[in-house]
Nucleic acid binder design. Structure first.
Lengths: 369, 369
DNA sequence: GGTTAGCACTCGCGGGTTTTGAGTGCTAAA
DNA sequence: TTTAGCACTCAAAACCCGCGAGTGCTAACC
């Protein structure tokens, strides 16, 4: 019985392995990936039904070939980079995505951030960079009545048009809508007209079947487009209505000696990720900058962490909060100064602190409308 | 000489301090904020020109009032939360922002993310959540010729209008433009016409003074608007032309035992933040998913880190890369599967792998245009 | 030949003990 | 009221040591 050797190429060189050596290598890598512990001959022996001595011999060979190595004399083996390479190229079993996984990814893909989100998110990133601390930012709603103020329709080609929607929060959103049947440029004014007369000033809940009915009737050939439009409108209005929460610069926490213990750091980060939105809102006491020191935080997890936050005005009925989280030993003066300056900037950017008269000022610039 | 006591309110109670005690407390906090080390009587004695014994006496008092505490019997003092509170409310010196700081913040505020950025950034976040690893995402340009394909102008009121711009990369951007003088709805078609005949198909560099001149001439009263429009166009085209880089989920690195040493973790993170964009680009070898194991990375900092990345097609001439970074011991099969599935999704979302015929397909949905 | 049992050896890890030194509180003198 | 002096405390660092998982080698076995 002549031993069958299987040939592999790694980084130029070629190595030849018996099927058994392949199995052993695979086991070593698999197990190490799982447990993060060096794997000894015993474990593999059990798995393959051979004695540990045999495995040791084989492993010695694999080690000579540079595929595995031991961290120190008397420990199990771990894969070397070369071993990983061979594993990835030849040994690795295809991982089958579960349905849940694919579904999660699909829905994540189709989920979109709204405009406000993006600004807020971006602001958080900047603050984090500026303060070298993890930052969070959130928007809270004070008057949740959001409606469309104005529709515009732009003809693109026979299969698509652009819908532009201005909300009562002064945001402008748009979408390139593809239509499953041919349309003509002439239908656009009609559609725009119908939309503006029937659907402006209404929140999503106030749009009844009756209203839709009569809108469809009065728009003739363009009636079929109404459903498409409303779908988008619903999306826009609902994502507008509730506050958003973002974290940024989490890694910065590691810059501070009080979080040398990675357990501590992780604990804080996971707390921020999961529950942050509740604990970090700005109390409504008029002040611009708020400092919460250690135990002044309600949340147990923040007991030895300080939070500095500043608020700013977004459009009508919305308020933004941006803040940082750090050790109680933190340069309060410096951080507070930066944060407050930045919040002022945001305030200005969104159009000043006054509740702005409806149509007059363009408040936020709303590029990318 | 009667000692002057200064009264402070903290959390309801009031405490009275001599000026000297205030100075000492301030010194303790300042120094502790700087060094993160408990501060001893000696240091303060030097600073205030008194003997350490005197300071010790004073500190004992401060400790009794609950303003400072010692981590253990024979260590220096650190501020208690109460001490911090008093410091923040009364002792803290205003921090003066330097010009550089304010400038940095101002420019950060005015810097806007373009649409592509946001999608890419968002994708990174999702992947990071999915793989429990830090992720990065970047876009690289293959054909840097970007121009405007089409202009649309929407009248808002006598002082503002919305400009919608579609680029050759199939992105739709818009901006609410405020005009310093009254305009009329009638000017809009003229403006749109002039823009479309004079400026479509041209990169920013190709727009000469001559072209602008003739455009202004042929647009009559609306001519003054041209400059405003071009400013926006220039902004859009320039931010479109170069690749973007984003990191997300940095905190996830802490979930892996090989980064228990927070020094290691920090090193990796700072490297990723600073230099990532160079080291993590996708090589152009046609494959969809690329795995780099430990030393296969060129960068010294990544020598015991593996990178898995997948590429996808964005609009004409642009390619996106999304990847994760983790310990060499990583579940290659699982991560690669998820990443590649996700990249496919992105690919589809942007309109498939083919270089899409100019006007036909709407490729990316480009909501928020 | 390949496989296995047996055995001596290695060396990292966890635990306890010792040493060190910064910083304290107290007392007595200035 | 301030200061010098001194005995005391205690966390952190250095050191030591025994356990045991895992090894390599050899000799017997199939």
């Amino acid at each position: 019985m002549t031993r069958v050797l299987i040939r592999h190429k790694i980084w130029g060189e070629t190595v030849e392995l018996t099927e058994r050596k392949r199995q052993i290598l695979r086991s070593v890598v698999d197990s190490y990936i799982q447990t993060a512990e060096p794997v000894g001959s015993k474990a593999i022996a059990d798995e393959l039904g051979l004695s540990s001595a045999t495995i040791r011999n084989e492993m010695a060979d694999l080690e000579n070939m540079g595929l595995i190595e031991k961290p120190h004399t008397s420990a199990g083996r771990i894969p070397s980079p070369k071993g990983y390479r061979l594993y990835v190229d030849e040994l690795m079993r295809d991982y089958r995505l579960s349905v849940e996984e694919t579904e999660k990814m699909n829905s994540a893909l189709s989920e979109k951030m709204n405009e406000l989100d993006k600004v807020i998110d971006q602001a958080g990133k900047i603050v984090s960079k500026l303060t070298l601390l993890p930052s969070y930012s959130l928007s809270t709603v004070r008057a949740p009545r959001v409606a469309v103020k104005r529709f515009e329709v732009i003809f693109v080609d026979s299969q698509s048009f652009i819908l532009v929607v201005m909300t009562t929060l002064e945001q402008v959103k748009n979408k390139l809508i593809k239509v499953p049947f041919p349309i003509s440029a002439a239908q656009m004014p009609v559609l725009s007209d119908v939309l503006n007369t029937h659907f402006t000033g209404l929140t999503m809940g106030e749009i009844t079947q009756d209203i839709i009915q009569s809108a469809v009737l009065s728009s003739g050939a363009a009636g079929a487009l109404i459903a498409l439009v409303l779908e988008f409108v619903s999306e826009v209005l609902s994502t507008q209505a509730h506050g958003q929460y973002h974290l940024a610069g989490e890694g910065n926490i590691l810059n501070h000696p009080e979080y040398q213990d990675p357990g501590k750091a992780r604990e804080l980060l996971t707390y921020l990720n999961e529950a942050g939105t509740d604990a970090l809102a700005m109390p409504e006491d008029g002040s611009k900058v708020k400092i919460l020191i250690g135990p002044e935080n309600i949340a147990e997890e923040l007991k030895d962490t300080s939070v500095i936050m500043a608020s700013y005005n977004i459009g009508d009925g919305m308020q933004g909060v941006i803040g940082v989280v750090g050790p109680t030993r933190m340069d309060y003066a410096k951080v507070a100064a930066r944060l407050s300056y930045f919040a002022e900037g945001l305030n200005r950017m969104f159009g000043g602190p006054q509740t702005p008269p409806a149509l007059e000022s363009p408040k936020k610039e709303d590029k990318d409308l």
